[in-house]
Amino acid sequence: MAPILSVRDLEKTYDGGFQALKSVSLDIQQGEVFALLGPNGAGKTTLISTICGLVRPTSGSIHVCGHDALSEYRAARQMIGLVPQEMPTAPFEMVGDTVAFSRGLFGMKPDPARIESILKDLTLWDKRNNPIMALSGGMKRRLLVAKALAHEPKILFLDEPTAGVDVELRHDMWRIVGELKNKGVTIILTTHYIEEAEEMADRVGVINKGEIILVEEKAELMRKLGRKLLSLSLTEPLSDIPGSLAHYDLKLEDEGRSLVYTYDTQADRTGITSLLTDLSQAGVRFHDLQTDQSSLEDIFVGLVSQG
């Protein structure tokens, strides 16, 4: 199936001469949730803004449902809803009015029933006659989602939807994303929270210094780069790793009281069985053991620090 969003060799050099995007290419499939991860200043917002028409690309092309984002900007933008990273709102406008305004901007006739259902989905219906300045930060963020959904877009961009919100609101946002996905909306979100990508995304892209350094199915990524740790709690603390075990990837931790073995889940043989045999031959005894899988966070830190 043709991708719903296709970015080819996109470059952006800001007026000051700073290159924020370096030959970015990316395909997004219909209906998926795509998480774009990257440290501060990586170019996440620049990429989204360029796709949405807020930043002019220096070179490269963007197609949304087959429409060129520049020459057929009306058709392309009609498909897109954007919730920006900052939360710009007009303080004196009414909640209901501002959502209706957003719909009108996209050339769609007023549809009070539609606006009502969007506001109810985002639990803002009670606030429809309040000025925006009377909303809390979390409500404002939901309002921006409501505005972005007012014209029933096929693609929704969420630029750091959970930056600076509390745990409850973050779970709220995850729920909203899940519901939208079920309705068939394609979602592209950026985040610093790895657990968020882990929670919501189907695919993960990592961007660093303006370059996409990796795009992978989340499950595949976890499997491919996932390392597991086996920790053994030793009965007798060790000062050194015995020479006979030198060929294993072992580390002593906790003042020699625990021995940590790192192994690759991808490998055919994990080496655990032979390690355990060699341990008992070396006379190392343990009274407990546990395994840990590395999270996306570990993977991410590893990738970015290489780059």
């Binding site: 028409g53 058709a75 920006p84 007009a90 901007l105």
Partner: peptide
């Protein structure tokens, strides 16, 4: 100027409006 100042202009600029 006001929507530029508050940032709400983003909405108009990213809408299918000429």
């Amino acid at each position: 100027y006001f929507p530029r100042f508050t940032g709400t202009i983003f909405e108009v600029l990213s809408a299918p409006v000429s």
